[in-house]
Nucleic acid binder design. Structure first.
Length: 935
RNA sequence: GCCGGGAUGGCGGAAUGGUCUACGCAGCAGACUUAAAAUCUGUAACGCUUAAUCGCGUCUGUGGGUUCGAGUCCCACUCCCGGCACCA
C-alpha cells in the first residue's frame, strides 16, 4: 500500500462530499432530530487561528456520530457581522463595511472548508443580510408593541473613542470600553432601552431547569442578574434598602449616595461643604470612584439626624461615595459591626460600632442534646504569647475532652471582671504570674456544646484576649489537679491554627488578627426583645416590628439598545411631531441600511445616518406628515439573539421561523462555544423567552445543553495575538500534517473545557497514530480475535463523544491501534468498526481507507457500531493481591474465579506464596479486581 | 471579600472507593541510515538495598478522619484558575 499522504486525499473527499450533499439536513423525515449548534463566528479581518475551530471540531465529531446513529442532524454555520469591529476595520482599511464583511466571510469559509467540516451550507445565514435583519427588526417591533422597548434619556455609558453609547455588559469590570479600552464616561442622551429586567426573575429561576449547562456559566449568570431579596426600612424621611434587617439595632448612622435627592434638601448646617463634596464626586469618573483601594470618603450632614426605628435613637446622616445611587434606594443604614464597608467607613470617621449578632455554632463533635435547655456561661479565651520565644501557649485537654486543643480559657466567676478572669486563668492553668493583657478582640462569640461530665448543655459566651509574658522565669509548677485535665504546650505562631481543634477556637484565633466586621450568622444581642434569637428568624421579625417592606432588587439593568454608529440594523421607528415614536409597519420591513459616502461616526452623539436627508425624512405611518427616521442602530448583540431559530427555516419570508419548523427542530440540543458566558447567553435567553410569550417559539429556553470550551494558548503559554506574533494558523498546520491530524490533536490536547497551550510536538503524536492506522489496513484478514478490546473501544468512544470527553476517546483508539499492531493481523469486521469510530474525528483518512477496503458508499453514511456487553471483559484478568491493605503482587486468574480458587492461586505463586500470612481474620475479595487478606 | 472549579511524573493529562500515572509529548538506549531527519523497537516516579535481578520503603498541594482499602468520601488549611465585586 502506498504511503499516507493527506494532500492526496483530503481535497478529493471534500469535493466528493460537497457534490453528493451528504450533510444536508432534511425537513421531511421520520427520524429523530439533533440540532447541534456552534456559537457562530464574527468574521474579523485577521482570519482564524487554531483556537477558533476547536469548538467546531467538537460539534463536527458529535454531529457525525449522531448522523451515523440514525438522527436527522442539523449542523449549520453562519456569520455575525454587524457591529463595531467590522465597522472599525472598514474605516481603518478605507473600504465599505459591506465589502470588508464579504471579504472576511469568504476568507473564513475557505479556512473552515479545508478542515473538512460537515456543515449544511444550504442554511448559511448572515446577520447583515436584509432578508435576515428584516426579522431582527420585526422582533424589535414586537418588543416595542409590548412596551418592552422604550426611549430613555437617563445618563448612559459613552465611549469617547468609539463615539457611541454602550450597555453595561459592554464594559470591562474596571469600567473601560471592552473594544478599545478607553475610559467610559456617563452622558445623558436619548436611547432605546429594552426592558430585560422584566425577565430577570424568570431568567434566574429557569437556570435551575438547565441541568445540562456547566455550573460556572449558570453561576456567572446568577451573579450578573444579581437578585437580592431585602427590605426597605424608613429612618424618618430616609428610606434605606438592606438585606440584613436583623442588624437594625446595630445601625449607628445612615448614608446617602451623592446623587440622592434628599442630599440637596435636608437642612444641613454645613451646606457649602456638602455641596462641594457632591460636586467633587460628580467630577470623578467611574474608575476613579471605584479604584485606588476603594478608600471611602464622606461628609456628615451637620445638624441632621434621623431616628433608628428599632432603637428609637437619633443617628447622624452622611453622604458618602461608597453608596450607589442606582441600586436599592440610594441610601443605606450603616451597621459597622456587621458590614465590611460600614466597618471601614466607621473606623475612619469614628462612628460608634455596636455588635448585635454573636456568631454561635454548635460544636460538630459534641453538639447540645435536644432534651435539655442550654445554659449560658460567660467565659474568656486568651492567647498568651511568650515574647522571648514568640510562641503561644495552648492547652491540650485530657479525660473527657481528649483530643481538643484550645487557648487558655475558663469561666468568669461572680464578682470578677473579665480582665481579672483572664489573668486568673493564666495563673491557674499555666502557673504564670507575670502575664499582661495586650488587647481584647471586642466581639463576643459563642459556642454551644454538651458538657457530658456535668450532664448539661452549655453556651459559652466568650470574650477573647491577647496577652503576653516577657519570659518564663517566674513560671511555677502546674499543680497536679490542673495537670490531670490539661497540659500546656508552646506553639509557633504559624502552627496555632493547625493545632486548635474545635472550629470555634480556630475562628476566634483568626478574628483576633483580622480588623474586619463580623459577617457570620448567629444569635442576636443588644437587640431588645430579639436578644438570643437566630438572626435568620430575626430578619422577618424585626422587619415586621418596624413596618419594613420586603422588596427584590437586581443588579441587572435594562439593556441600552441603541448605538450611534452606521454598521448595524436600523431601528424601525419614525419620529413624528404629532405622534411621537411610531413603529414602521411590518409590511415595510426591512428598513434598509442606506448606502452612504461617509459612515465614520459623527462625534456629535448622532449616528452618521442622520446626515442622509433622503433616508431620514419619511412620512409618519399614522398621519402621513413628514417625520424623521430613528437614526440610531442596534447593538452588535441583536443579530445573535435569535439566529438559532433562523437556521431552522433560513429562507422563510413570512415569519422569522415557521411554527412547524420550530416545533420540529427546537430547542437546540447541544450548543457549543466559549467567551460569552454572560452577555450573549443573557440576551439570547431574554429574546427567546419573549418570543415564547408571543407564541413564536414553543420552548422556554433556547439551548437544552451547553458545552463551554477552553481556549488554546500559543506555544509560549500566552494568548495568541498579532502583537506578540505567536499566532498559529490552521492553514499551515493542515498543510503540514493534514486536517485529520489537526482535528484529532485539538481534541486530544486535554479535556474539552481546559485551556491548554498548543504544542507542535504534540501534533506529531496523532499524526503517528494516523499513519499506524493507515499501515494496519495491510494487516486486515479473515481471522478472529481482538474481540474484547474492540468492544471496549466501541463503548468508550461512543460514551466519550456523547459526554464531550474527546481526549479519552482518542486515547482509547490509540490503545486499540497499539494492540491491533501487536496482533499482527486484524479481523476485517473489527477494523471496519474501528474506522467507523474514527470517522467523525478523521473523516478524510477513514473515507479513503473505507473505499480501499472495497466499499463504494461513504463511511459517513454507515451506521454507528454497537458493542456487545458480554464481550467487554476478558476471560483472564489480572487480580491485585494485598496483604493488610498493601499490594504484594498480582496473579492472572479467570474472571469468574471463586475466592478460594484465587487464594489457592496466590499461594501457589512462587513469589506471592511466601508473603501470604499463615492465618487470616478477614478476606475481602472483589471478583476480577482485588484480593485483600487481613491477618 | 463572595461564588464556582481545581491541585496527580519533566509536560498535557488517565483513573465505577479496588494494582496511581492509561494515552500522548519530551528524555534515554537501540535498529535502519555514510549522516541527519523521518520511522520503528525498548526503557522510564523517587529513596534504600543488590554485581544485577529480586526485594523493601515513600509518593496524587498540607494536616487530620472514615474504610479491609482513599487521588476519589468527610473536616480543616494552603495555593492556583474563572465569574462577580463599594450591589448594602
Amino acid at each position: 500500500m502506498k504511503n499516507y499522504d493527506h494532500k492526496d486525499i483530503e481535497k478529493k473527499w471534500q469535493d466528493t462530499w460537497k457534490k453528493s450533499a451528504i450533510y444536508t439536513a432534511s425537513d421531511k423525515t421520520d427520524k429523530p432530530k439533533q440540532y447541534i449548534l456552534d456559537m457562530f463566528p464574527y468574521p474579523s479581518g485577521e482570519g482564524l487561528h487554531v483556537g477558533h475551530p476547536k469548538g467546531y471540531v467538537a460539534t463536527d465529531i458529535y454531529s457525525r456520530m449522531k448522523r451515523m446513529q440514525g438522527f436527522n442532524v442539523l449542523h449549520p454555520m453562519g456569520w455575525d457581522a454587524f457591529g463595531l469591529p467590522a465597522e472599525n476595520y472598514a474605516i481603518k482599511n478605507k473600504i465599505h463595511p459591506r465589502v470588508a464583511v464579504d471579504k472576511n466571510i469568504a476568507r473564513y469559509k475557505e479556512q473552515l472548508s479545508i478542515i473538512g467540516f460537515d456543515y449544511d451550507w444550504s442554511r448559511e445565514i448572515d446577520t447583515t443580510d436584509p432578508a435576515y435583519y428584516r426579522w431582527t427588526q420585526w422582533i424589535f417591533l414586537q418588543l416595542y408593541k409590548k412596551g418592552l422597548a422604550y426611549e430613555s434619556t437617563a445618563p448612559i455609558n459613552w465611549c469617547p473613542s468609539c463615539q457611541t453609547g454602550l450597555a453595561n455588559e459592554d464594559l470591562e469590570s474596571d469600567g473601560t470600553c471592552e473594544r478599545c479600552g478607553s475610559v467610559v464616561v456617563k452622558k445623558p442622551m436619548r436611547q432605546w432601552v429594552l426592558k430585560i429586567t422584566d425577565y430577570a426573575d424568570r431568567m434566574l429561576a429557569d437556570l435551575d431547569t438547565l441541568t445540562m449547562w456547566p455550573a460556572h456559566i449558570k453561576e456567572a449568570q446568577r451573579n450578573w442578574i444579581g437578585r437580592s431579596e431585602g427590605v426597605e426600612i424608613d429612618f424618618g424621611p430616609i428610606r434605606v434598602f438592606t438585606t440584613r434587617a436583623d442588624t437594625l439595632y446595630g445601625a449607628t448612622y445612615v448614608v446617602l449616595a451623592p446623587e440622592h435627592e434628599l442630599v440637596k434638601t435636608l437642612p444641613a448646617t454645613n451646606r457649602a461643604e456638602v455641596d462641594a463634596f457632591v460636586a467633587a464626586q460628580k467630577m470623578r469618573t467611574e474608575i476613579e470612584r471605584t479604584a485606588e483601594g476603594k478608600e471611602k470618603t464622606g461628609v456628615r450632614l451637620e445638624g441632621v439626624t434621623v431616628i433608628n426605628p428599632a432603637t428609637k435613637e437619633e443617628v447622624p446622616v452622611w453622604v458618602a461615595d461608597y453608596v450607589l445611587a442606582h441600586y436599592g434606594t440610594g441610601g443605606v443604614m450603616g451597621v459597622p459591626a456587621h458590614d465590611e464597608r460600614d466597618y471601614a467607613f466607621a473606623t475612619k470617621y469614628n462612628l460608634p460600632i455596636v455588635q448585635v449578632v454573636m456568631p454561635c455554632s454548635p460544636d460538630p463533635k459534641n453538639p447540645p442534646t435536644a432534651d435539655k435547655p442550654i445554659v449560658s456561661r460567660d467565659t474568656v479565651i486568651v492567647f498568651l504569647k511568650n515574647n522571648a520565644s514568640g510562641k503561644y501557649a495552648l492547652l491540650d485537654w485530657h479525660e473527657s475532652l481528649e483530643g481538643i486543643t484550645t487557648g487558655i480559657m475558663g469561666g468568669i466567676e461572680s464578682g470578677q471582671t473579665a480582665d481579672e478572669a483572664v489573668l486568673a486563668e493564666i495563673r491557674e492553668e499555666a502557673s504564670i504570674p507575670n502575664a499582661r493583657i495586650v488587647r481584647e478582640l471586642g466581639w463576643l462569640s459563642g459556642a454551644e456544646y454538651h458538657a457530658s461530665h456535668k450532664g448539661e448543655n452549655r453556651r459559652s459566651i466568650a470574650r477573647v484576649y491577647l496577652a503576653e509574658v516577657d519570659d518564663l522565669s517566674k513560671q511555677g509548677a502546674i499543680p497536679e489537679h490542673e495537670a490531670k485535665t490539661h497540659s500546656l504546650v508552646w506553639v509557633e505562631e504559624g502552627e496555632v491554627l493547625n493545632r486548635l481543634v474545635p472550629v470555634h477556637q480556630k475562628f476566634v484565633w483568626q478574628q483576633l488578627f483580622k480588623k474586619t466586621a463580623l459577617t457570620e450568622s448567629g444569635l442576636l444581642m443588644n437587640s431588645g426583645e430579639f436578644d438570643g434569637m437566630n438572626n435568620e428568624e430575626a430578619k422577618k421579625k424585626i422587619t415586621n416590628h418596624v413596618g419594613g417592606r420586603v422588596v427584590t432588587k437586581y443588579k441587572l439593568q435594562d439593556w441600552v439598545f441603541s448605538r450611534q454608529r452606521y454598521w448595524g440594523e436600523p431601528i424601525p421607528i419614525i419620529h413624528c411631531a404629532e405622534h411621537g415614536a411610531v413603529a414602521v409597519p411590518e409590511s415595510e420591513l426591512p428598513v434598509l441600511l442606506p448606502e452612504v459616502e461617509h459612515y465614520e461616526p459623527t462625534g456629535t452623539g448622532e449616528s452618521p445616518l442622520a446626515n442622509i436627508t433622503a433616508w431620514v425624512n419619511a412620512p409618519c405611518p399614522t398621519c402621513g406628515k413628514m417625520g424623521r427616521r430613528e437614526t440610531n442602530t442596534m447593538p452588535q448583540w441583536a443579530g445573535s439573539s435569535w439566529y438559532w431559530l433562523r437556521f431552522m427555516d433560513p429562507t422563510n419570508n413570512t415569519a422569522p421561523v415557521s411554527p412547524a419548523q420550530e416545533k420540529y427542530w427546537g430547542p437546540v440540543d447541544v450548543y457549543v462555544g466559549g467567551d460569552h458566558a454572560v452577555r450573549h447567553l443573557i440576551y439570547a435567553r431574554f429574546w427567546h423567552k419573549f418570543l415564547y410569550d408571543i407564541g413564536v417559539v414553543t420552548t422556554v429556553e433556547p439551548f437544552a445543553r451547553l458545552e463551554f470550551l477552553g481556549f488554546i494558548l500559543a506555544e509560549d503559554g500566552k494568548k495568541m495575538s498579532k502583537r506578540l506574533g505567536n499566532i498559529i494558523n490552521p492553514d499551515d498546520v493542515v498543510a503540514q500534517v493534514g486536517a485529520d491530524a489537526f482535528r484529532m490533536y485539538e481534541m486530544f490536547m486535554g479535556p474539552f473545557e481546559n485551556t491548554v497551550a498548543w504544542s507542535t510536538h504534540g501534533v506529531v503524536g496523532v499524526r503517528r497514530f494516523l499513519e499506524r492506522v493507515w499501515r494496519l489496513a495491510d494487516t486486515v484478514s479473515d481471522i478472529s480475535g481482538l474481540d474484547t478490546i474492540t468492544h471496549q473501544t466501541i463503548k468508550k468512544v461512543s460514551d466519550d463523544i456523547e459526554t464531550f470527553k474527546f481526549n479519552t476517546a482518542v486515547s482509547q483508539m490509540m490503545i486499540w491501534s497499539n494492540e491491533a499492531d501487536r496482533a499482527k493481523r486484524i479481523p476485517r469486521a473489527h477494523y471496519e468498526a474501528f474506522l467507523k469510530l474514527l470517522a467523525p474525528f478523521a473523516p478524510h483518512i477513514t473515507e479513503e481507507l473505507w473505499h480501499g477496503l472495497g466499499h463504494e458508499t461513504s463511511i459517513h453514511q454507515e451506521s454507528w457500531p454497537l458493542y456487545d456487553p458480554s464481550q467487554l471483559e476478558a476471560e483472564m484478568v489480572t487480580i491485585a493481591v494485598q496483604v493488610n491493605g498493601k499490594l504484594r503482587g498480582t496473579i492472572l486468574s479467570a474472571r469468574s474465579a471463586h475466592q478460594d480458587e484465587v487464594i489457592a492461586l496466590a499461594k501457589a505463586d512462587k513469589v506471592l506464596g511466601a508473603k501470604m500470612p499463615p492465618a487470616w481474620s478477614k478476606i475481602v475479595y472483589i471478583p476480577g479486581r482485588i484480593l485483600n487478606i487481613i491477618s
